[in-house]
């Protein structure tokens, strides 16, 4: 039972990263793709109708995590207190940037201010989310009751009294930043035409080299910080398909980008994100929050809720998700096609 919910949470998290990932990514490359006011308005219009729905995956994942693994929710959210509250502030700023920009469409000061807020908040969010994942892989100083608290930074090392930020988690943040930039640029290439499309493709082309670089670096760093991550791969060799898929999807991003097939490039970067996250999850299982002292680690077994709650939720959850996927299909179909510079809503 806990295994099913572990997979459901992982699935929802992957959906969140792919979906909100492309609109956060659009924010990261906002200034590279949109060079003037009308172009930046077009960038925002590509995500305008969908960003809110994408963000709901975060809330829905949080909700499922809350009832399925209450101990994990309690421990991780209180332990990551400061960065999470900052994430909230960034989410508020980003939403304001997207939605308030078009309220005064012809006021240049107004639009340029919100462009900046939107882009900055997107960049910081990508780094924060990456750093959060880095913390989970590295492990946190859980006590015997299963709680911890980390300041934002301490001595930047991965052992002893760790902070949220150290060299490893900052590296994870950079990986997320580059990966979402490429992913967002793929999305923009797919949704725009002419100048914007060319620039977005160029961002993917150049960003790809950075992505390969940081991916290799981060895999090496993971081996150094948490060598036990490979245990599951040795135990269940089919897992090696995941790193193989990471490599393949990276190659595919470059291939489709060079061919000008933006949709396929976007699908490839989605696969990349899913596999990077999936690879970490596969390696960590059954841990959900590793402790620096392994005896205190939270696992799917000691963080889970009661049997009845988990089984009754298996009845409503699939119904809800199938309906939600229906909405999504309808929404994306209604707003399908490319966004043109200069057109109104």
């Amino acid at each position: 039972m806990e295994l099913i919910w572990f997979m459901i949470v992982a699935f929802m998290l992957v959906c969140y990263v792919i979906l909100d990932g492309f609109d956060i990514g659009a924010g990261i490359v906002h200034y590279f793709v949109g060079r003037n006011d009308a172009e930046r308005a077009a960038v925002i219009r590509t995500i305008g109708p969908v960003w809110d729905g994408n963000e709901v995956w975060l809330l829905a994942t949080g909700g499922v995590l809350y009832f399925a693994f209450p101990m994990l929710y309690a421990s991780a959210f209180s332990g990551f207190y400061l960065p999470l509250i900052m994430v909230l502030w960034l989410l508020i700023m980003r939403a304001a940037g997207i939605e308030l920009r078009h309220q005064l469409e012809h006021n240049h000061m107004w639009t340029s201010f919100w462009d900046f807020v939107f882009s900055l908040a997107s960049i910081l969010l990508a780094i924060f989310f990456g750093a959060a994942l880095g913390n989970v892989i590295r492990g946190v100083p859980l006590n015997a009751e299963g709680y911890f608290f980390e300041p934002l930074f301490t001595h930047w090392g991965t052992t002893g009294e760790t902070g949220i930020l150290d060299w490893f988690t900052v590296l994870s943040g950079v990986v997320a930043f580059v990966a979402l930039a490429v992913h967002g640029a793929n999305y923009l290439a797919m949704k725009t035409e002419d100048e914007l499309n060319i620039r977005a493709r160029k961002v993917v082309g150049v960003g790809w080299y950075a992505l390969v670089g940081v991916t290799v670096l981060s895999l090496w760093a993971v081996m150094y910080v948490r060598p036990t991550l490979l245990d599951n791969y040795y135990a269940l060799p089919i897992g090696w398909l995941i790193p193989a898929a990471v490599v393949a999807s990276l190659a595919a991003v470059k291939y489709f980008n060079a061919k000008g097939q933006d949709r396929n490039a976007f699908i490839s970067s989605s696969v990349y994100l899913a596999m990077m996250l999936g690879g970490a999850v596969f390696g960590l299982f059954p841990l959900v929050l590793p402790a620096l002292d392994p005896a205190n680690s939270l696992t799917v077994y000691n963080a889970r809720a009661g049997d009845y709650g988990l089984s009754v939720a298996l009845l409503w959850w699939p119904v809800g998700i199938i309906i939600a996927l229906g909405y999504y299909t309808f929404l994306f179909r209604t707003f399908k096609g490319k966004v043109k510079v200069g057109e109104e809503h």
């Binding site: 809350y66 009832f67 209450p70 009754v312 939720a313 998700i321 309906i323």
Partner: peptide, 22 residues
Amino acid sequence: SKYAGGVIGQTLAMEGTFAFFL
């Protein structure tokens, strides 16, 4: 949250799944 998450998390998760997506 540790104490009551298994119960009140249900309704919060249902809000996300049934209301927020809609």
